[in-house]
Nucleic acid binder design. Sequence first.
DNA 1: AAAATGTGTGTTATCGATAACTCAAAATTA
DNA 2: TAATTTTGAGTTATCGATAACACACATTTT
Lengths: 335, 335
Amino acid sequence: MITIYDIAEKAGVSAMTVSRVINNTGRISEATRKRVKKVMEELHYIPNSMARSLVLQKTKILSLLITDITNPFYTTLARGAEDAALRAGYRLLFANSDEDYAKEKGYVDMMLSTRVDGVLFAPTGDHSLENLLQLQKHNIPFVVLDREIPGIEADLVLGDSKEGARKLVEHLIELGHHRIAMINGSPDVSTARLRYTGYREAHLLSGLAVEDSLVIHRNFRDFQDESALDALIHHENPPTAIFAANNMLAIGAIQALRKRGLQVPSDLSVVCFDGFGPTDALNPFLTVASQPAYQFGALGMQLLIERIEGEATLEHRKMILPSELLIRSSTQALA
Amino acid sequence: MITIYDIAEKAGVSAMTVSRVINNTGRISEATRKRVKKVMEELHYIPNSMARSLVLQKTKILSLLITDITNPFYTTLARGAEDAALRAGYRLLFANSDEDYAKEKGYVDMMLSTRVDGVLFAPTGDHSLENLLQLQKHNIPFVVLDREIPGIEADLVLGDSKEGARKLVEHLIELGHHRIAMINGSPDVSTARLRYTGYREAHLLSGLAVEDSLVIHRNFRDFQDESALDALIHHENPPTAIFAANNMLAIGAIQALRKRGLQVPSDLSVVCFDGFGPTDALNPFLTVASQPAYQFGALGMQLLIERIEGEATLEHRKMILPSELLIRSSTQALA
DNA sequence: AAAATGTGTGTTATCGATAACTCAAAATTA
DNA sequence: TAATTTTGAGTTATCGATAACACACATTTT
């Protein structure tokens, strides 16, 4: 491996001079600068960022932790975060927790041992608190994305889960649906709780009763699990519409419905939170509350970098991004 | 920050002894091992992986470079790669080149300076050769995914682009289509060339002539670009079917068709390479040649780790994974 | 009992880069 | 011309960890 010492020797200068050329610091005569640069190119020198980070105590690497890399919401978010990070001169390291606390913890350990400069953190749920405290204890700045964590002070970028849910359910109610099921994520996750609150509010505002046997909890990424749907179908008084708390749960529900010979929307209407990124264009079919995923990433990254570089005000900021109701063909008026 | 020296001092031993406890090397009496471990826990010690990598000359970090993080083919591939890497005790750092040579080069520089132990490399195209040579020059092992690069010897994991394309086009021909357009990726990419070859072969074997004005090239990820479709629609003798060389191009084509009031499959049949990951389940609509994306990642990672750990035979291996023709509702017999 | 081994631990040098300090020669000022 | 300042370097210590060697003491072998 080529080091600054190799360059120094060949250029007839000290290692420090080479370092100065690389970083454009200190005083260097134009002649030696040129000479050193020439040697660096000849030997294809690449600085060892670990040696550098060791002495500088910073890595210029940020980390983005998402809970499901196969969910288009998060990949679009990742693009936003990446673009913002690169623009600010940072590299971005992606990590994928799979909605799994243990994996999340593993990645947090990795971030600590890699000494990343900051973390954009989409938590798996309330229990992520410990992992966040771990980052806090080691003075690694972070911004929490998408899900609020009780018990921690941090910059936050959230969607308007309650409002979005209310709009979706109100849309169903306007179409005449009175028995609306909800397939929700784990109650350990703030968005699941808030979306339930929105669902509830829509009912109350319309004078409808909430029937808790129509509300079912599943893991946000288990779109293969058909048991939720079976429970609803075999309900003694089955629903005429389903509100899925995110896109993956909707995929699971629709897939399961189809297997059982039920059509959307003629047999049941379906709505959900989040769109499907680029593949949405393929078949704009589901009525959704679409969140600005790219902005989640871009804005979160901006907050993070501001905090790292000390431009942040002391108090923590909480940004709430609006969602947009997109009415498409997965909903229809009740016959 | 807590270092081994802090631990050493508090435990009343030398730093070396702490290092031995951490790595389970050398001889340590049970008593001091326990004492050191206790202190490490008390102080919440986390090893500094940069200092360690600096002396060990290895990082236990691998990198996966993909060309489009919003493409479900690559995110599913990423899952396969990640699982295999974690199983083998490596961490995986994701990078996203966006089908952009300059971004790709930026990430390669980052990998070199981070001194990753190896790279799973899905190249943007033939010109990626330079970036691969760069890795080679610095002795970083890599495995090339999905796209073959003329001029380099490397382990390869590929799909059967030619066969898959032939099967798709033959399916269209069997349905009575004789004027089949192809929306292809850049000719700089091996899969684009091979899929064209398969398209051509299917025509020749059926005694049909290939009409080059029906073959159009676009960037594999520019699904927003509708100009390809316009060229086909306004053709003096328009096609009755379209073969899109990947999923994103198909999305673009179908979206554009829909905007122009044309229905799939009643007005035109559409087929493409690659499925849509989990969202495929939402609406199994497109007839596709589906590639085993997860296996691409898992197998590629396995080859990479074997090569890094020296278990690899000297000669390079080339794995070709079959694709599966899934006939769905985006194709129908010509009236 | 002397010699040879084994056990547990410490010392020193090193990985590649940079900060802080030093210093000779050149340029400027008085 | 002597004193001062500026310029363009070099030296040394350091970041946090580990390899290689050294070494005292305990244990086993002859």
